[in-house]
Amino acid sequence: MLSAPSQLLMRSQDVFQTGKWLLVNPTDSHISTQLDSSELHVFHQYFDVYQTSSAQDRSSSHLFAASYPTDAKFDGAVIYMPKSKDQAKMLIANVAACLKADGDLLLVGENKGGVKSAAKLLETVSTQVNKIDSARHCALYAAKVDKEIKPFELQSWQKTFDISEAGVQYKVCSLPGVFNHGAVDNGTKILLNSDIEVPNGRILDFGCGAGVIGCFLGMKNPKSKVVMSDVSALAIHCSKESARLNNLEVEVVASNGLSELQGKFVSVFTNPPFHTGIQTDYSVSETFISQIKQYLVQDGSLNLVANKFLRYSELLEKRFKLVTLIKQTTQFSVYLCSRVK
């Protein structure tokens, strides 16, 4: 079943029947096959939906990237409202630069997801912004891009900041939409300052974000071979840039969970992703914990930091013979896990 924003979009699908259209960050893997479009291109910043969509839909052109090339010119585009308003601003600037003069720019999303701010966001590129439909606690806004559009450069949205943790000084690049944009989150700080051992050999930073953990590992032990993975194209871009800023040779892999990773690791480090809303969802982390032993050498280890209220210890003890709580604060717990079952 389509998500609520996609269901709302389907009610206006007649607008896609003429011209060349760009669909941006759809939340459904099959919405592109449902829209009746003469020519549809799809821009993904999230590898999981990109991987499934491109496999299912051979009629449309799918691109996984941090930004869309502005030499391609479209008659219209639809952006699914991201969680971050700053990411929405960046996407609007990028996509507007991909449109023909007076092109149509639509923004769809859930009311609780911030779509009510769409009119103000779209006013940066248009003098004509209208709410054209609403249903299922969602709204669809449309704008005619009639203002002067500046050339889009992803680098102008980047923020570089200095980090000093556990005696290691380095730089990190960040973009809107990347976890804890422009700063180090408290959970990661706790992990980095937990007297962790960084062994020689191949190590993984899972859910790398801007590369804060991965670059720390590479700086602390230059003999390690760091691999960083994330589902976000923005995170992949930032981690590569962060490694470059610190003269580190690393491997950065776009992956839905662990699916695209190859080979074994002597150690894995992570501040795993989870979602909080009406209900807490940490299915990505549950799947990661259940599968990680396949990627560890026999005496490999897992270093994981998590919010204290998340009951990770029970999940970890099902997969590892030895689970040690090496540090704990009022908010976070750091676990060292070894001897996989």
Results as ranks from 00 to 15, higher is better:
239 S>Q: 01
220 K>H: 06
195 D>H: 14
237 H>Q: 13
259 S>A: 15
277 G>P: 01
210 A>S: 15
223 K>N: 14
260 E>K: 14
283 S>C: 00
207 G>L: 10
277 G>Y: 02
261 L>R: 11
292 I>F: 06
262 Q>T: 15
200 N>L: 07
269 F>K: 04
252 V>R: 03
282 Y>L: 09
254 A>C: 11
275 H>Q: 13
265 F>M: 00
282 Y>V: 05
231 V>T: 13
262 Q>N: 15
282 Y>D: 14
196 I>W: 04
244 R>M: 04
209 G>P: 11
244 R>D: 11
242 S>P: 03
224 S>L: 06
206 F>R: 07
211 G>F: 11
258 L>I: 07
206 F>G: 04
237 H>K: 13
231 V>F: 07
278 I>N: 14
203 I>W: 10
236 I>N: 09
250 V>I: 08
279 Q>L: 12
195 D>V: 12
221 N>K: 03
252 V>M: 05
254 A>K: 09
241 E>S: 11
193 N>S: 13
245 L>Q: 02
205 D>F: 07
198 V>A: 01
202 R>M: 04
204 L>M: 10
292 I>P: 04
259 S>Q: 14
279 Q>N: 15
283 S>K: 09
215 C>N: 15
211 G>A: 09
213 I>Y: 11
222 P>G: 09
202 R>Y: 09
265 F>R: 03
262 Q>L: 15
252 V>F: 02
236 I>P: 08
273 P>Y: 02
231 V>I: 15
211 G>H: 11
218 G>Y: 01
220 K>W: 03
239 S>P: 04
292 I>K: 04
257 G>L: 00
266 V>P: 00
229 S>Y: 09
264 K>G: 00
246 N>Y: 08
237 H>F: 13
258 L>M: 14
287 T>S: 14
240 K>I: 01
255 S>W: 12
242 S>V: 02
209 G>R: 08
203 I>H: 08
256 N>D: 15
245 L>I: 00
200 N>I: 05
216 F>R: 10
290 S>M: 02
215 C>P: 00
272 P>Q: 05
283 S>M: 01
233 A>K: 07
252 V>T: 12
238 C>E: 01
235 A>Y: 03
292 I>T: 09
273 P>S: 01
263 G>E: 13
194 S>M: 07
292 I>M: 12
241 E>R: 12
279 Q>S: 15
228 M>L: 11
264 K>T: 10
219 M>Q: 15
216 F>M: 12
267 S>R: 07
200 N>E: 14
263 G>F: 13
243 A>V: 02
